[in-house]
Write a protein that binds this DNA or RNA. Sequence first.
DNA 1: AATGAATGAGCATTCATTCAT
DNA 2: TATGAATGAATGCTCATTCAT
Lengths: 202, 202, 202, 202
Amino acid sequence: MPARNGHPAEDPLKKAAILDVAIRAFAADGFRGTDVGVIADQAGVGKGTVYRYFGSKEELFWATAFEVLLRLERHLFAAMQGIVSPYERLRAAGRAYAEFFVAHPQYLEVFIQDRAEFRGVGPESHRQYHEKLAERFAEIIRQGVEAGEFRPVDPRMTTSALASVLYGCVVLCCYVARDRSPEEITMHTVDIFLQGLRAGGC
Amino acid sequence: MPARNGHPAEDPLKKAAILDVAIRAFAADGFRGTDVGVIADQAGVGKGTVYRYFGSKEELFWATAFEVLLRLERHLFAAMQGIVSPYERLRAAGRAYAEFFVAHPQYLEVFIQDRAEFRGVGPESHRQYHEKLAERFAEIIRQGVEAGEFRPVDPRMTTSALASVLYGCVVLCCYVARDRSPEEITMHTVDIFLQGLRAGGC
Amino acid sequence: MPARNGHPAEDPLKKAAILDVAIRAFAADGFRGTDVGVIADQAGVGKGTVYRYFGSKEELFWATAFEVLLRLERHLFAAMQGIVSPYERLRAAGRAYAEFFVAHPQYLEVFIQDRAEFRGVGPESHRQYHEKLAERFAEIIRQGVEAGEFRPVDPRMTTSALASVLYGCVVLCCYVARDRSPEEITMHTVDIFLQGLRAGGC
Amino acid sequence: MPARNGHPAEDPLKKAAILDVAIRAFAADGFRGTDVGVIADQAGVGKGTVYRYFGSKEELFWATAFEVLLRLERHLFAAMQGIVSPYERLRAAGRAYAEFFVAHPQYLEVFIQDRAEFRGVGPESHRQYHEKLAERFAEIIRQGVEAGEFRPVDPRMTTSALASVLYGCVVLCCYVARDRSPEEITMHTVDIFLQGLRAGGC
DNA sequence: AATGAATGAGCATTCATTCAT
DNA sequence: TATGAATGAATGCTCATTCAT
């Protein structure tokens, strides 16, 4: 809503610049450890501008976390593009998930900070977005079940299960099996998830 | 009468009291949000004593995280006690893992803080302990493979996989499927992990 | 069509609107606690306009304080209208003074802020106006003395005395005798001032 | 309450030093304009120490204002020492009041800030102290009335009246009659207060 | 050895003022 | 002329760590 005589009420480029810097900053130092002033400096704007655009450090963080979620979603669905088999779609999503966080470790840190600092209690809009995203995966699983490709599992719980598997893999890879890449571990885990650890009992 | 070695005259009871308080404090407010002074007060000791026993806030946190790891390990192996089948042992461990963190949510927060604040880079002794713990599970998987109960997977990678699955379940339960308990989600996930999502293609 | 002199094309209505809002704002939050941006918003103008019309927050405050002084003066002389006896004129002025600040507590706060923040050191024009106002009262006292209604006091000092009495009454009424109204206290004080506390020793 | 092995829980000298600096600082820059850090520096202590001793900037200010009130009270009663006649006691108090604030202008500024910033709403303990002080003066007036030295006025209201007169004189002297000293103005006003402005109508 | 008073770097947020549009 | 986005200095308060007692 520009004023009567022309004003760029909000500059999307500037907003994006702040967000980009914020991702790196929160990833590097954590929510508490991050200085809003440093973000402002690195984004080339005044501290007041950051507050103008985002209201508070907390809201800035949530905007940051949301942006990461958006990018992850885009990456996942791009990777599943053109694949039909639900089985292959989940494998592709798993691989993309690992790739995404390996390529952008800072995104992972933001995810982790979100949980660590706010225990998953963010703005309602985030919850709704999670919900929508989960539903998209539940639908894939539902199709796999209907197609007889998957066992007759509960789609929503299995979406949770898949999310847990993927999240656990990328988060814990720093603790375990340092001689393997996160992608390797993730794909191994996803494959067990899909095939089962148990020896095939027909 | 100073002790034989190291710090003279350390009172193990006092140390345990501090640690107990620290778990609750770090869980409640996070690493950065926790005030060492408050821990000292609640433990009934002076701030200086906390520093004498633990050196720094960071070291205190690591001691805290280590204590939680010890308790988790005890709980897991107690739950596997007397079970022979590797398959059943892993199921029992999975259930125990979820139970443990549901019964003591603060322990989970400490785990999460550990990763969030220090990216899994703690003292070397922790790494070694993780290693030993992982080896114990790898051994179970190895036995399962040898017994023909499991597919011929890499035991170490599969241990990673299992850890990721369990960790992901308890950490993410706050985001997804709020209508299910963490135990339900975890057991569902573990069962898929063991049985496979794919429809049994003999 | 710019005005003949000084600032071209100043809108007196807009200026008055800003001043009105400013009185309330400064009274409510004090000089330091008042946000110029809020004044601009409430007056329905841009922040830049406030600065265009008043130059700085400080000058805005002085304009505000001056406006209050003008209104007080009008109120006092309206109340003295038609009264001849100097004695009765001063009583009427005293009563009007108390009434004025009871009816408009925000005016009082502005007076107090003026003294608190600037120690009475405002622009020279204010000093001159004070001087003129004081002289009008001194003249009344002079007449009272000449008429034999007052003792032969120094008119200027007695004007000061009267001002102090009135100011003290309205400012301190929040500390003392909360069971009496400011008007009661003021009239009691004024009457003592006029009659003397001492038992009339003829 | 020192700890088991000797601690000077609170150093009264340090506290007094902070208070002394605070009086000057608040007087010079006002409540809002004063930087607690500057007070700490000038008092030769850390900022944390100021907060340890006084809890907050506001409480520090109240302690400051209270200290000034105590000093004023001591000065007033010292000046009335040995004087019997209520009439002379009030004159002496009036003179002492003016002298006190002329000798310590910063005390006056603190008084004014108190009213400006907090509208006389301080801690309950202050109100009680004011009350006690007022009662002491009311008693003097009561005695003057009983002795026939004063007219039969209400002692409490007349105390208010006297307080208003004195306060008004010292506060406003910066606006009016700059060619007279505050003491002169005050004594003139007090004398009118005592004798009456009106020509003695027997 | 134990204590807790003292320290001061650190940080979120506000707001007077400017100036491009 | 009017606007309000941008700026960044300013400030209250916290808390990890030290050290005199």
